[in-house]
């Protein structure tokens, strides 16, 4: 992952980049769904994020990414030790491949120890590794149903529970879910759709100059990675600093009551299902304010994030010709007028 394409070198795709940064600032927003044409750099952006995220402090050697100040009392690794040393680790960005088995996702019996020592031990899966980080699913609309069920359950409870013949393990698994896909491959289940806090629509750049820039940078990166990464190192550091600063600022950002009224009115006007829409919209606007260095959330922030936060929550009306983005914009014009 150390050699991923730099986040700051991505041309355009502002909505996608902003959505990823917003979830990096406030992970409780739940995730980002990126839908769009092929060859538009969806996975590139997600993989680039891995290089951008600040490191996290963990208990050294803990495969469950326990935070030193909040160790899970049931953590199979940490409870076996009296003394914990602290280590810095890159924020995990874990790929969930389509062909992954259930065992690989939730974790399973540690084969090596079972076979060689006859010991019963749990080998953590992808969910454990993604704790406190990001879980990325490319082509998310092709994911097998049983894996979707499993993810929905874990995402709702923030905990992964494995029970099997005396193997009883529960560990926290809180992660930002990032999915990408092409809408032409099929629709997503509404329950899963709802789990993604933000959704973005990606198209390839319209302007030839932008397209040229994309290809030039990509080509330069492929020809000489080290040199390309060095060129962008400064910009990357600046982006990373923005995330760190925004995270520190986030608890202090004020959400005025008038803004909450607007949030509620907007969701009501659009018939966005459930309170999750309102909560996500408020949190996303707050995180964006923090990213901008503002101490108070304004209608401007709301306006910026509303399409991402709401467009996938609208009830489908196939006979309404307007796209969901247009519907959100229309509602905003009425509510925020």
């Amino acid at each position: 992952m150390a050699h991923a394409f730099p986040f700051s070198a991505i041309v355009g795709q502002e909505e996608m980049k902003r959505a990823l940064m917003i979830t990096a600032i406030d992970p409780s927003i739940g995730g980002v769904l990126a839908f769009g044409d092929r060859g538009t750099g969806k996975s590139t952006a997600v993989r680039a994020l891995a290089g951008l995220l600040p490191e996290i402090a963990v208990v050294d050697g803990c495969p469950y990414n326990c935070a030193p100040d909040r160790i899970n009392p049931d953590c199979p690794h940490c409870k076996a030790q009296d003394h914990h040393t602290v280590a810095q680790r890159p924020t995990p960005v874990i790929d969930l491949p389509l062909g992954a088995t259930e065992d690989r996702v939730v974790g399973a019996l540690d084969l090596e120890r079972a076979l060689t020592k006859g010991e019963k031990a749990f080998e953590p899966g992808l969910l454990a590794r993604a704790h406190r980080g990001f879980l990325y699913i490319d082509e998310v609309n092709l994911l097998e149903d049983y894996l979707v069920d499993l993810l929905l359950d874990v995402a709702a409870s923030g905990e992964n529970v494995v029970e099997r013949e005396g193997l009883s393990v529960r560990h926290p698994a809180r992660f930002v879910l990032v999915g990408s896909g092409n809408p032409e491959e099929g629709e997503l289940r509404p329950q899963l759709l709802d789990r993604f806090g933000l959704s973005v629509e990606i198209a390839s750049p319209k302007v030839v100059a932008d397209r040229i820039e994309v290809i030039r940078r990509r080509d330069a990166y492929e020809r000489d990675r080290a040199a390309f990464l060095a060129t962008w190192a400064e910009a990357e550091a600046a982006e990373q600093a923005r995330i760190t600063t925004a995270r520190d600022l986030l608890p202090e950002v004020i959400v005025p009551d008038a803004l909450l009224v607007h949030v509620a009115e907007l969701c009501l006007a659009l018939g966005a299902d459930g309170l999750r829409g309102e909560l996500t919209l408020m949190r996303a606007a707050r995180a964006l304010a923090a990213l901008d260095g503002a101490r108070e959330v304004t209608d401007h922030h709301l306006r910026e994030v509303a399409p991402s936060a709401l467009r996938h929550r609208l009830r489908r009306d196939p006979l309404d010709e307007a796209g969901s983005t247009t519907r959100v914009t229309r509602a905003m014009d009425t509510v925020l007028a």
Binding site: D37, R38, G39, T40, G41, A203, S204, P205, V208, R211, V214, I215, R218, D219
Partner: peptide, 13 residues
Amino acid sequence: AAALGIPSLRAPL
């Protein structure tokens, strides 16, 4: 590539 209406950026690459 743009003139031929090819949206994917993989094509010119």
